[in-house]
Each structure stands twice: as structure tokens, then as C-alpha cells.
């Protein structure tokens, strides 16, 4: 029963997010601030993780190939497939659920605890539109983060494969081009948009409707990470089933 109530309140929140819009000049500023906080602020950690995980995928693949009949370009092929299909869109989104999701929940939760949301409401401002809408718009740029993660993941795989002596550069690049299906990129970006919406709205819901004090803000951040991750994994399964099966 509680879950049904929560789902209902989530959709009612979404309805309010897209109504009674804040003044456009104010919204513009908020959107740029959110892009800075959520997108640009996430780039260093995404770049670092993508590069090294790409390297690890290449090494793991190479080390598990001991059959001489398997072509050398498989290292590049496996790296590309792993990164484009799952690592960049899904794995990075789980990391973002921790980084961006917790940030959103704790910042909105702190505003709830310190009555800043009440202050907005008393002034006649639709606090959900003011707080959540700019985050949704900012996260429309999330596919850019994932594109960077894809590029750096593959680059990391190439560096580890070639300089680690696991593959030649030509074979790795051949693997990247082998059996390339452009729809896989479209599939990855469709997933990314779905995950971006989850990343913007689920942590916002957790923060906005939290009750209590500073301790509860911490608890809400943890719960937010758990639920955002669960929904990303579920959405990943559903989108994959719909688009690839």
C-alpha cells in the first residue's frame, strides 16, 4: 500500500513539475547552474572511471583468449561492445545515481529541513517547477557525458591493449569496426535519456518529500541511491527487451 502511495505521489510530483512555470529569466539561470553542477561537475569522475575500466575490459578479454583460432581483433570488438552497450550507459548511470542522485536528494532535502521550500511556496512559487524542472533540462545533456564515457572507455582499452602488449593497434581498430551496428549507438542513447529522467526525478522526489532533520537527509540520500539504481536496472532490462530482442 505504501509503495502504491509513493508511486502516486511521484507521478503527482511530475504533474506539478511541468505546471506553473517560474519566470523564464530565472529558470535560464537555474538551468545553467544545474548543468554546471550535474553535468560538468561529473565529467572528471566519469572520465577517470571510463578510461580505466575500458583498459581493464581490454586486458581481461585478451587474457581470456588462449585459443589461437580466435582472431586478435576480438579484444577491440569486445571492448567496443561492452562499453557501448552496457558499461557507458548503465554502469556510469549507476555511478551517477551515487554522485548526482545523492547530491540532488541532499540539496533538496536540506532545503526542506531548513524551510527554504516553504519560503518558496509562501512567495507563490511552484517549488517543484523551480527545483526539479531545471535538473530535468540539465540532464538532457547527460547523453553527452555518456558519449565522452564511450570515447574514453574505448581509448582506455586501446591504450591498455596496445601498450600492454595484448593487441596490435591495427587489430584493435579492426575489432572496433568489425560487425558494427549503428543501431547499438541509438539504443545506448535511448537508454541514456530514460536513465537521465530517472536520475533527475527519483532523487528529487526523495528529497522533496522527506520528513525530519539532518539525519533523515542522510537516510534519504542512501534510499535515493538504492531506488535510483533499482529503477535504472529495471529500465535497462525493459528498454533492452523492447529494442534489441
Amino acid at each position: 500500500m505504501k509503495y502504491l502511495k509513493d508511486i502516486g505521489s511521484y507521478f503527482l510530483m511530475l504533474k506539478r513539475v511541468f505546471s506553473s512555470f517560474t519566470k523564464s529569466a530565472v529558470l535560464k539561470k537555474l538551468i545553467f547552474k544545474e548543468i554546471d553542477d550535474l553535468i560538468i561537475g561529473s565529467m572528471p569522475i566519469v572520465a577517470f572511471i571510463s578510461f580505466f575500466v575500458g583498459g581493464v575490459i581490454a586486458i581481461q578479454t585478451a587474457l581470456n583468449i588462449d585459443n589461437p583460432l580466435i582472431p586478435e581483433y576480438l579484444v577491440g570488438f569486445a571492448t567496443r561492445q561492452s562499453i557501448i552497450l552496457e558499461f557507458a550507459p548503465t554502469f556510469i548511470s549507476i555511478i551517477m545515481a551515487g554522485k548526482v542522485g545523492s547530491f540532488i536528494t541532499s540539496s533538496i532535502g536540506s532545503m526542506r529541513v531548513t524551510e527554504q521550500i516553504d519560503a518558496l511556496e509562501v512567495m507563490g512559487i511552484n517549488s517543484l517547477n523551480y527545483l526539479v524542472f531545471p535538473k530535468i533540462v540539465a540532464l538532457l545533456l547527460y547523453p553527452f557525458v555518456i558519449a565522452v564515457a564511450m570515447f574514453l572507455g574505448i581509448l582506455g582499452g586501446w591504450v591498455a591493449g596496445v601498450y600492454g602488449g595484448f593487441s596490435t593497434s591495427a587489430a584493435f581498430i579492426q575489432g572496433l569496426q568489425e560487425d558494427f551496428i549503428p543501431f547499438h549507438i541509438i539504443y545506448a542513447f535511448i537508454k541514456t535519456f530514460v536513465f537521465a529522467f530517472i536520475l533527475a526525478t527519483v532523487p528529487s522526489w526523495q528529497g522533496y518529500f522527506m520528513k525530519g532533520g539532518a539525519l533523515e537527509v542522510g537516510k534519504a540520500s542512501t534510499t535515493s541511491f538504492v531506488w535510483t539504481s533499482v529503477l535504472i536496472i529495471l529500465a535497462n532490462y525493459i528498454v533492452t527487451q523492447l529494442l534489441l530482442s
Partner: peptide, 9 residues
């Protein structure tokens, strides 16, 4: 408001 409710950002 009791705590001021100033926007800390």
C-alpha cells in the same frame, strides 16, 4: 521563518 530560511546557495 524560524530558522530564517535564507537560500544558502
Amino acid at each position: 521563518f524560524q530558522g530564517g530560511a535564507l537560500f544558502d546557495s
